[in-house]
Design a protein around this nucleic acid. Structure first.
Length: 228
DNA sequence: CCCTGATTCGC
DNA sequence: GCGAATCAGG
């Protein structure tokens, strides 16, 4: 396979989305992750710190240089390995007044209809997973602002939200694409085209990714526990 | 071990 | 330019 204009375009897009080289390689097909990485570098889009120059302070000034008067940068801040890939911010005017909102407490990132279904009864979680375009967010681990809730046995809303988030970033693999290390959690309706498998890295020895392991392996039904 | 990207270097 | 091999890290 060669790097046709089309494939390069796809590469750029996926890379910008934050997909890993191996994932991109798999989607493109016919290339290895090395090829992808190599191409990425050749294209010069290895580091996506757009709008922010790496600021390579030419600290290698010859010793002959006299006293630099005032030392400006006291904290060199060793460039972090690789900035987390963030989605393109919606180019918007930035009113200075925006700052006040900064102190606001976050009103909870997502709160979709967290219908508490009967535990791990049915594997089909999302009734209608719309193929919405995801801006590639780094999976919020759903912290733990809410300690213990009523039933410690139920799937927490956070967990459900987390799962939904994860499913947005699922690789949507087909049956054939599943391997021993991809999450095999089914998403969507098998009777329709909107069906695929999660495909995210599975937990070692488990059939599902971390998020799905969490909802798949419940400690038995939460209800009817009081029975004695 | 699994994975990640980075780099090298023969082709 | 390409990408396998290798390196370096998580």
């Amino acid at each position: 396979m060669s790097w046709t204009d089309d494939r390069v375009e796809t590469l750029k897009r996926l890379w910008a989305e934050g997909q890993s080289a191996s994932q991109i390689a798999k989607e493109l097909g016919g290339v290895t992750r090395n090829a992808v990485i190599g191409k990425v570098h050749r294209l010069g889009l290895s580091n996506r710190t757009e709008g922010e120059e790496p600021a390579k302070p030419a600290a290698a000034a010859p010793a002959a240089a006299a006293a630099p008067a005032a030392d400006p940068a006291p904290a060199p801040q060793p460039a972090p390995r690789a900035a987390a890939p963030r989605a393109e911010a919606p180019a918007r005017a930035e009113p200075a007044a925006e700052k006040s909102a900064e102190s606001r407490a976050e009103p909870r990132p997502e709160a979709p209809a967290a219908e508490a279904r009967p535990a791990a009864e049915t594997p089909e979680p999302a009734p209608a997973p719309q193929p919405v375009f995801t801006p590639r967010r780094p999976i919020v681990p759903a912290g733990q602002p809410l300690p213990p809730q009523p039933s410690a046995n139920e799937i927490s809303p956070e967990a459900l939200a987390s799962v939904r988030e994860v499913e947005k970033t699922s690789l949507k693999l087909s049956l054939m694409e599943l391997t021993e290390r991809t999450c095999k959690w089914p998403i969507g309706d098998p009777a329709t085209d909107k069906f695929w498998f999660c495909g995210l890295p599975s937990q070692p020895g488990k059939p599902y990714c971390e998020a799905h392991v969490g909802v798949a392996f419940q400690p038995m039904s939460a209800r009817r526990d009081r029975r004695r």
